[in-house]
């Protein structure tokens, strides 16, 4: 057992967990943040993607105790009250989801991708960057459209508070 102390979605969180507890299970079971999903055993699907210290990582492939001292952002941390984050809004607008299982991971990957490409994104880059996120429903087309649209909106300097949360 270890004592953990980390920031989650801007709030200080302390707790105790077995050392073998994966970050995704700590988020879901200890903190009740069930937006982060588990879709595979092989670190390949990306349903579990969250940001740790500003970088997209697979929370199924990291121990919770490894994140102690870090700052974590999950899908629950993106919206500002009822105002969706621009990436969330674009997924809604462009029908970037069907069952929604992959969506939290897609959106966390997308916000990280947009942040790493301030020069803007093209379709080939978005598709290559989605390498680690699998969707069984949409065929990716509308996900790519949503990310391209969101990256344009965000570049236009829509400076809502939601943007800062990402």
């Amino acid at each position: 057992m270890s004592d953990l102390s980390l920031m989650v979605n801007g709030k200080r969180v302390s707790g105790t967990a077995e050392d073998r507890t994966l970050l995704v299970h700590f988020l879901r079971e200890n903190l009740g943040l069930t937006g982060t999903h588990v879709g595979c055993d092989t670190s390949q699907c990306g349903a579990c993607v969250v940001h740790v210290d500003g970088k997209a990582v697979k929370s199924c492939s990291m121990l919770a105790v490894q994140a102690s001292g870090s700052s974590v952002v999950t899908i629950e941390g993106l919206a500002n009250g009822a105002d969706l984050h621009p990436v969330q809004a674009a997924f809604k607008e462009h029908h970037g989801l069907q069952c929604g299982f992959c969506t939290p991971g897609m959106i966390m990957t997308a916000t990280d991708m947009i942040a790493r490409h301030p020069e803007g994104l093209d379709e080939a880059t978005v598709r290559a960057e989605l390498e680690g996120n699998i969707c069984r429903c949409t065929g990716y087309h509308n996900i790519v459209k949503a990310i391209l649209a969101a990256s344009k909106t965000m570049a236009k300097g829509v400076k809502g508070k939601a943007k800062q949360a990402a």
Binding site: V57, K58, R116, E129, N133
Partner: peptide
């Protein structure tokens, strides 16, 4: 190597 999340760690 792998995907962006794998490369981050």
């Amino acid at each position: 190597i792998g995907d962006p999340a794998v490369r981050h760690r």
